[in-house]
Design a binder for these strands. Structure first.
Lengths: 205, 205, 205, 205
DNA sequence: GATGAATGAGCGTTCATTCAT
DNA sequence: TATGAATGAACGCTCATTCAT
């Protein structure tokens, strides 16, 4: 067989694999992993049940590859090789971009949140997770400090929570959800949190 | 010998039902509803599989009763019959209390978040959900307005996101998570959001 | 305990047993034996599941006692101690009476036919069955002979089939079934069969 | 290797389906529908329990397909497109044929009678049943009238009962049953019933 | 005599996975 | 590469039966 046709076969394999993963992701996100059967995936993808096992070792394996692939593509979308401190516009761009990524991959993120709640995601991807996440957190912390925060650790907790909650809203939201309003509110609020020098209202409980 | 009195039977029933629900909640929270089998529940509860069906009509029924019971106990913990506007201390108390409720029922809230992600929870409990939630949101909105917010709708989105995200952190956190620090950070941040009169940093994208 | 109260207890036992058997018969006839649960019987009879086993050894036992009791009461309704040959009126009375017995106990006969189809009933009641049935058949055969039948064995087959079929119709019939018309048709036809001296129309196939 | 052709798959499916239906019919007839388990069917057919559900949606579905198939083959065996009135020989042929069909499919008819007793079979197959049965009854009624019956409605009741009873005997009979003798007796008797102009012996009760 | 909680075997059914073709 | 028939373990659930009270 010529190398050319070998390459063609390879392309077919890649396409089929992608097709199966995309179909599975849709169903996993809609119904959950355990409530989705391999038959369903195969049927929706228009292939035979048996063929699935030509591309994946098991149903679990499909899930793992989806998650792995998802993470890879997410982090490749963030350009975190940032030397200095973010400008305000860069920060805003980062937030906006993260919203865009999530709303464009709502299925993946539904799945991600579901898994995250059940298992500690950091454990799932061990070193890799921290390795990828750390630079983002560091950059964010530097930015908060630069804005004059009186308690950067607290602020990053608050802002991180706010982002997580907002992402969750986007993921679970219906089509009529005012995504823009939320996005702007989160951006504004994060500046308020970083910049404000108010004394804390609270006494330790 | 005479048969057990009806009170005795009633006591047994209540106790067993509680045992089954608690056991099921643990497993549902850990593994998810679909990944948990009735056999597992029965085994962990130390009873026979068949007995489960003496107390619940179906596996679905167990879930429904857990959620119903959970909602009942949550809302009974919030005293929302509030006429005027919250004081700062009342607001702080409300937030602290909500954190306490969630961290004391982490299993229930794990389950709740998981279900919420798959099916819009508002749909699940339709009328009741909105009926119970609305007064809380109204009270919160009034408080935000009273604090002089320049855009209460945006602020409630931001604060709501922040709470949701923080709750999610508490639910998924390990035992070593600095819950107090998070709690304080969220309270401080929410005041910053409401009080700050800064002009918006953002231009519409 | 006085003999009197002992007798009272005995009466209670008999009544309860009868109640259970009647309730079970209704359900067995409607739904079939296997599709009827002991719980159903107990519930419909207004007693506890456990009590059933105070009166019957098993679910099978209930069925057996119903059938035994049914047979006893059927044969006790036929006065077959008949020396000579039946008169026409006695024959007609016998047929009419058999229809009455069946339509008054449709539930029992439904059950009887169902069991008969699955198992050879003669086997179920071995000696007893033949012992009870034989005199009836002998009396009938004598009557047919006396009416001048040219082939009594054939005629008893035909008349026997006709009765069996008619009984089956009564048992499965709705409330609007013209039972009288059927009864009269069967009586008339049976006389035609016995009396007619026609040559056979048929050649052996 | 290339996969089986779709004709090969089709052949396998048809053969297996037939095997399952035949095995199930045997067991349903012997033990009744409810007393027969899917495991039993599979074991007797020499396949796995799960495979059954590759061919039938449910246990109920097996029953339905058996009955449907049975009815189809029965009615296709009667040539009822009969314009004029039957000759005597045609009538005899019709009766003999019906006996043959039933004794060749005793299992199906056992099942049929059992179901008929519990649920009015006309209800089960509603329209179709009446549509198929009506022409047979009409042809029979015309024949009875042509033979000079003084009360055709009564005679068809009597003959119908006789046939039903005789069929039931054939179905429940052991291998030693004198089927020929019964068949001839029924044919003779039916002519006697139709032709006889005797006055009725009976007075209304 | 009477209750119903409790058991355990078995039911109908589903499904991840294998394999001959 | 691709098919779908086939398997077997496990699922949710039912029910005849037992037993402490």
């Amino acid at each position: 067989m010529s190398p050319r046709s070998s390459k063609q076969f390879d392309d077919i394999r890649k396409q089929k694999k992608k097709l199966i993963m995309e179909t599975a992701l849709e169903l996993f996100a809609e119904q959950g992993f355990h409530a989705t059967s391999v038959s369903q995936i195969a049927q929706k993808a228009g292939i035979s049940k048996g063929l699935t096992y030509n591309y994946f070792e098991s149903k679990d394996d499909i899930l793992h590859e989806i998650i792995e692939e998802g993470f890879k593509s997410i982090y490749s979308n963030f350009d975190i090789n940032h030397d200095g401190v973010l400008t305000d516009d860069e920060y805003i761009y980062f937030i906006r971009q993260s919203f865009r990524i999530i709303s464009e991959n709502r299925n993946f993120w539904k799945l991600y949140f579901t898994i995250m709640i059940q298992h500690n995601v950091a454990n799932l991807f061990e070193g890799e997770y921290i390795e990828k996440t750390q630079p983002i957190l560091t950059t964010l912390l530097d930015f908060i400090k630069a804005k004059g925060s009186s308690d950067p650790e607290a602020d990053i907790l608050a802002i991180g929570s706010m982002l997580k909650g907002a992402y969750l809203m986007v993921v679970t939201s219906s089509d009529f959800f005012p995504a823009d309003k939320l996005e702007n509110a989160i951006i504004d609020a994060s500046f308020k949190i970083m910049q404000s020098h108010n004394k804390s209202k609270i006494k330790q409980s």
